[in-house]
Design a protein around this nucleic acid. Structure first.
Lengths: 336, 336
DNA sequence: CTGTTAGCGCATTCAG
DNA sequence: CTGAATGCGCTAACAG
């Protein structure tokens, strides 16, 4: 049996209140008593029971984090950010993974509430209307992160996808590219941030008097994917495309690999850029030029914001924008 | 104020014991009472307070996970495994990151104990004698994971590094390679698993009547690294090395990149293999041949083992070995 | 400065 | 089948 505050009090020959006082440094205690208590604590290897403490103080010092999949690189970066600032304020993290199951998302929110977390950060990749409603109705502080969907009325933090696309397209144009294709994918609804990226890309193209060329790469069947890719390859060979702006780094790398298999070199034969700057982007060869999404900061800022709200300092704007910028690496060739 | 069991009891017109009974399904309750209680629970949106419950049952249903850095790919894979089996048994995960600070490791063990976790899984990359002692003295169930150091008396799970090295070296030999270099690094002490890998490599080489060639790549200064690498490059050019067995995938990829910059192609000019099969190994081009370390399973098995011990089913062996095998991909050329 | 008391929200005897 | 009472380990008045 592990020692309790009572055992300490008995051994020290004082009341449990006194013990509590020295533990929490909450009220003055005579040096003499303090010494005795400390000695007893040491001898008994006493460690306060946080559960009991939480029950009375109503502070668990825990924030719940619900993620899509902790195994995904960017997710773990975000969690790293959360963890690090949480730690600064003495908060621990209770982690749950949903693997894209929307029922699990709502279920875990409730579970975490039962565990008395003081706030929740959700990293999702799906559009879950039910969850959003529930969150709004909830009195518990929370931050909702979603790279893919447009979040309207929920507290969140992200970059401006539109500005990111603008900066990247500008970069390509500045490097002398005129035939720039934007590779998108089948969007399942009108809430996808893809809309913003396309908007940014199109604006720049049109502003520069260039023709936007938006190509949807379906992720439904491998056949249709190959089909469209072969058309793209033809255009590259015919010099109808000199640069490809892929909607994501994953997509960009997949494309470069395919091109590589076809004997098309990047950036010599065609430039390719991505979006998000995932880990892989800098490790892959050639190193991928991309728009940086500061995942660690997503987590850190979310945690700060949440903790601020928990401490009752009120919350500011719903949506916090972080700076986005182009990371120039090796997959863009300067044209002249 | 969120509803408590008392509120439910009052609204349902029964005692809190009855409410508790229907919540936990612990003892028979008349259909009539049950109905009233359920109704009250629904109306009040009552959710039991797990903290209070834990205090009396002495079961937190939480396991603590202390990691080196959740942002590292393999770590997040392990955590994913832990999370998934934890979930099956209704256990949540309390996460802490140490970033290699040994004091933090012991500190977090204590913190988690205070939070009344029922067991702890530690993913470390350093040798921390103090922690090991503390863990052994502790009555709390735990599993200690460390990819780099030899764990002797602590419950752990891993592959046999020696067998892995044997299998890989065999593979290289089978592919017709005779001049195989093993790339190691400066080991800080004799407890590194690197010893096992070298042992396995050497045994196979000697068994095949081949000369072991062990090269230490220092990670101290970039200059000395470059220095040794240039010697390796010379040997490759002189055909004194046809295959490189790197101690890790990270190292293998770094080497391939360097070779690439020198105009040496893998696997055409030289074969290169790694160890661990990190995510990158299959995404990188050429795809890296490697020895698989089943990170997800490390987590899943650790969690199973821990939960088993928590449930009092006793624990079996200290050390659990998982199968290791060679994943053949594109960086090995068959020689004839 | 210190001890006594109440109570956090709940599960669990123990009578009935 | 049900309710009253006890206590999990601790903090926070409160009175001294």
């Amino acid at each position: 049996m592990t020692a309790t505050i009572k055992d300490v009090a008995k051994m020290a020959g004082v009341s449990i209140s006194t013990v509590s006082r020295v533990i929490n440094d909450s009220k003055p205690v005579s040096p003499e008593s303090r010494r005795k208590v400390l000695k007893a604590i040491d001898e008994l290897q006493y460690e306060p029971n946080e559960i009991a403490r939480s029950l009375v103080t109503k502070k668990s010092n825990i924030i719940g984090v619900i993620v899509n999949d902790i195994g995904k690189s960017y997710v773990s970066q975000v969690v790293r950010g959360i963890e690090e600032v949480g730690r600064m304020y003495n908060y621990d993290i209770l982690l749950s993974s949903t693997y894209g199951d929307s029922e699990a998302e709502t279920k875990y929110v409730k579970l975490l509430q039962q565990k008395q977390v003081e706030g929740i950060i959700i990293i999702s990749e799906i559009h879950n209307a039910e969850l959003m409603e529930y969150l709004e109705a909830m009195r518990l502080p929370f931050v909702y992160l979603n790279r893919f969907y447009i979040i309207e009325k929920l507290p969140t933090v992200s970059i401006s996808n539109k500005k990111g696309a603008i900066k990247m397209t500008n970069h390509l144009v500045e490097q002398g590219h005129k035939k720039i294709a934007y590779i998108s994918f089948d969007k399942d609804n009108g809430r996808n941030v893809e809309l913003y990226k396309i908007e940014g890309y199109s604006e720049v193209m049109e502003g520069a008097g260039l023709n936007p060329m938006i190509i949807n790469l379906p992720n439904t069947s491998p056949e249709s994917y190959i089909d469209i890719m072969s058309k793209i390859i033809d255009k590259i060979k015919n010099n109808e495309i000199t640069a490809i702006f892929a909607h994501s780094d994953e997509s960009a790398i997949k494309i470069i690999n395919l091109l590589y298999d076809e004997g098309i070199k990047v950036p010599e034969d065609v430039s390719v850029v991505g979006f998000s700057d995932i880990d892989m982007a800098s490790i892959y060869r050639p190193r991928l030029t991309s728009v940086k999404e500061p995942f660690y900061d997503y987590g850190a800022v979310s945690a700060r914001r949440l903790l601020k709200e928990i401490s009752g300092e009120g919350t500011d704007e719903e949506k916090i924008y972080l700076p986005e910028y182009v990371i120039e690496r090796e997959t863009v060739k300067k044209l002249d």
